[in-house]
Structure formats: C-alpha cells, structure tokens
C-alpha cells in the first residue's frame, strides 16, 4: 500500500511516456498533426540515411573515449582514497563529489570559457608571452567534448570504483604478499579483478548518459562535435518531426543498451579467464 503512490508516479511519468515514445516512432508527421497509421518508415530513414549513421557512430566513439579516459583518470583517485587515506576519507569523498553537485550547465560553460578562442588558456598563454596567436584547436571539436565530459562525469567513475575497492578484504592482499606476489602482480591478480564490478558500473554510468548528452556537444562541440542528442532535439524543435525524433531516440537507446550489455559481459568473461 505504501508503494502505490510511487508506483502510480512511475507508471504515469516513466512507463506511459516511454510507451508513447515507442508508439510515436511508428507514426508519421503530416504538417502539424501526426498520422497514426503504423509504419516502419521512420526506422527505414534512421538506418539508411548516411548522415545519421555517421552521427550515431561518432556519438558512440566519443562516449567510448570519454568512458575510457574518465575511468582511467578516476581509478588512481579511488584507489588512493580507499587504501592510502586513513582518517580523512569522508573529507576526500566530499571534496571529490562537491563539483559533481554544482550546476552541470555551469561546469560545461566553464570549459567553453577555458578553451575558447579568446578564452582563459589562450589569453593566459598570450599574456605570458608563450604564444602570439590564439590556438584554434582547443574549442569546438570532439576533443573538447571528451575533456569536458571527463570533468563533468568524474564522480560517476570515482564513487562506484571507490565502493568496490573499499569492499576488498584486506587479508587477501596480505595473503598475496605472503605468497610472494610483488605489488604489481598483487594489484593485477587481486585488487584489479576484485574492483571490476566497480569499473563496469562506472563505465555503464558514464557511457549511457554521455551518448545522449545534449549540453556538452551544443556548447563546446562545434560542428564536428555534434552528437545524436542534438539531432533528436532538432526533430522536436525546428524540424518538428516528432515521429522521426522518437525513432532516432528509440534506436540509439537500443543500440547503446546492446553495446553496454555485450561489452560488460565480455569484460566479465575475460577477467574470469585471467583469474
């Protein structure tokens, strides 16, 4: 009984809208109205138009790089807090999560300010006399998107990895050392495999939302950094073709889901074999 208000909300605000979205993807736009005759024409457009495929592949590529970079940068920090910090753990965790809670939009904006043509880096380097003309390769490209996302999604990597490292039974590490493993072998054979659930969790938490990120590509991506979310938004805005937008959203979500699940399973299997 206590669950019924929450269930009602979830049915109304999550299940029903997603069902409607799926339904819309089988309809067609005619002027300002939608034609509810079911058809696969939207999906045909999604899969055959080359521009869409390029954009989708680029989104997946950017998100994959973001996931790798963010996890690789965050792992040592999570390791440091879990194994090296003794008393100030709470303070460290708080320090690492505060930026995550401060406005996402403003953090992306900060990177636009940093990387811009007349931005912080360029003006700083010029006033130090290190360069004479602003560097143009900083902003409005996929790299800018990756750097910005590695910053904005940092907490999604740090926290799950930290939790899985913290759970590791310390006596296993002692056992490995007693049996003659050096620090490196011990890390590879005990710590890393046992922290894998955290790494996988972090990867999913970063990969899935970044493929659908709209703000970052809009503000720092430029025309080479446009991602699938920008295309979806345009269908609900300027172009006003909701069924096509729905089909784009459903198919990219399905594809991202399939990629996430298969990579996760492959990682689990690979580690099971190494062990």
């Amino acid at each position: 009984m206590l669950l019924s208000p929450t269930t009602a909300l979830l049915l109304f605000a999550l299940a029903a809208p997603i069902a409607l979205l799926v339904l819309y993807s089988f309809w067609t736009q005619s002027g300002f109205n939608v034609d509810t005759q079911p058809t696969l024409v939207q999906y045909a457009t999604v899969f055959t138009r080359e521009g869409y495929r390029t954009l989708f592949l680029r989104s997946v590529a950017i998100s994959s790089v973001v996931t790798l970079v963010t996890v690789a940068l965050a792992y040592p920090i999570a390791y440091f807090v879990a194994f090296r910090v003794q008393r100030a753990k709470f303070t460290w965790l708080l320090l690492l999560t505060i930026p995550f809670w401060t406005s996402y939009l403003l953090r992306v904006f900060a990177w636009k300010v940093i990387l811009g043509f007349n931005g912080v880096i360029n003006s700083g380097l010029i006033s130090l006399g290190l360069i004479s003309r602003p560097l143009e390769f900083l902003l409005y490209n996929p790299t800018a998107v990756v750097v910005t996302m590695a910053h904005t999604y940092a907490a999604f990597a740090i926290l799950p990895i930290y939790v899985s490292l913290e759970k590791i039974d310390r006596s296993l590490l002692e056992a490995a050392a007693d049996l003659g493993d050096g620090p490196f072998r011990r890390f590879m054979r005990v710590t890393l495999p046992l922290s894998l659930p955290g790494i996988i969790g972090a990867a999913v938490l970063i990969f899935v939302p970044t493929t659908g990120d709209y703000v970052t590509p809009s503000l720092v991506g430029g025309s080479d950094g446009v991602m699938i979310a920008n295309l979806i938004q345009v269908q609900f805005g300027r172009v006003n073709n909701w069924p096509l937008g729905a089909a784009l959203a459903i198919s990219s979500m399905a594809a991202v889901g399939i990629i996430a699940v298969s990579v996760t399973q492959a990682a689990r299997l690979a580690v099971a074999r190494i062990r």
Partner: peptide, 23 residues
C-alpha cells in the same frame, strides 16, 4: 520496484524529456 524507480538513471535525460513532452 527498485529497478523501476532507478530506471530513470539509465535512460539519457533527453529521452525522458521528449517522452514526457509527448505524454
């Protein structure tokens, strides 16, 4: 119920946005 409630974490916000717009 827990999975259902946490599902929104795993759906890109833009998809939730357009789905609610359609609703």
């Amino acid at each position: 119920v827990l999975g259902f409630a946490n599902l929104s974490l795993f759906i890109p916000e833009i998809v939730i946005g357009i789905a609610l717009l359609i609703l």
